[in-house]
């Protein structure tokens, strides 16, 4: 059994941001706000910015992605 957590930082206290759905570029954490708009919080400056994407459900996902030409056929 390993136990090796380190406290990195705390954001806040601030009003409820909504549910975090993913981290991109290792610097932005994305939230779906209660008004269903997508927002991001810069983890180094802690500034919050709306992304301009509306009508989101909280069960959305966001991830970094790199395309490839790898075949999955037999």
């Amino acid at each position: 059994m390993k136990e090796s957590w380190t406290k990195l930082f705390i954001i806040g206290p601030l009003p409820y941001l909504g549910r975090p759905i993913g981290i991109c570029k290792n610097k932005d954490i994305f939230f779906v706000k209660e008004d269903e708009e997508l927002a991001k919080c810069d983890l180094s400056t802690h500034t919050i910015q709306e992304v301009g994407i509306k009508r989101m459900f909280s069960r959305s996902q966001i991830a970094s992605y790199k395309e490839s030409l790898i075949s999955i056929a037999e």
């Binding site: 406290k7 705390i10 206290p13 009003p15 975090p20």
Partner: peptide, 24 residues
């Protein structure tokens, strides 16, 4: 987050203010 696993805990403080704690 970077090359680490981040455990993000969203905790309500006073007056409807929240903190997000990052353990890595």
């Amino acid at each position: 987050l970077n090359e680490s696993i981040a455990l993000i805990s969203n905790v309500m403080q006073k007056h409807l203010l929240f903190t997000y704690q990052f353990l890595v």
